[in-house]
């Protein structure tokens, strides 16, 4: 399964911030979420992150395994604790707080 491949990649990944974004094709929310998270990462976490974007439409089996209900969904796998964020990621301040990123550090 494709998902197992990702699991392997996950182990190999040594970035400080490991993020995974689940989206649904090219719905407005998804497009906004992708551009929002890219911008946040590039601005505040440049070089310290890995971002994986998964289209749930392509892998519907994943939805049950990952307990996905609302989309878009961003999962912060590292650093621990693991956090889940839903929405188009437009509230930058809130996201930075949850990701535990110091705005001034950026």
């Amino acid at each position: 399964m494709a998902y197992m491949g990702k699991q392997d990649r996950e182990d190999a990944d040594t970035s400080e911030y490991m993020l995974r974004l689940f989206i649904t094709g090219s719905t407005p929310n998804s497009i906004r979420a992708v551009s929002n998270i890219r911008q946040i990462c590039e601005t505040y976490l440049k070089g310290r992150y890995s971002l994986e974007i998964i289209d749930v439409y392509q892998e519907p089996g994943l939805a049950q395994q990952e307990q996905i209900v609302a989309l878009p969904l961003l999962i912060k796998k590292r650093p621990l604790p693991q956090r889940k964020l839903i929405g188009d990621l437009s509230e930058v301040d809130k996201i930075l707080k949850i990701l535990d990123v110091n705005k001034d550090n950026g």
Binding site: T27, D88, K94
Partner: peptide, 21 residues
């Protein structure tokens, strides 16, 4: 407690799960 809401979202995840099932 596990989920933070940051902006607009929908329940497509549920739709996909149900549709898949």
């Amino acid at each position: 407690t596990e989920i933070e809401e940051t902006g607009e979202y929908d329940l497509d995840g549920l739709f996909i799960r149900l549709g898949h099932a």
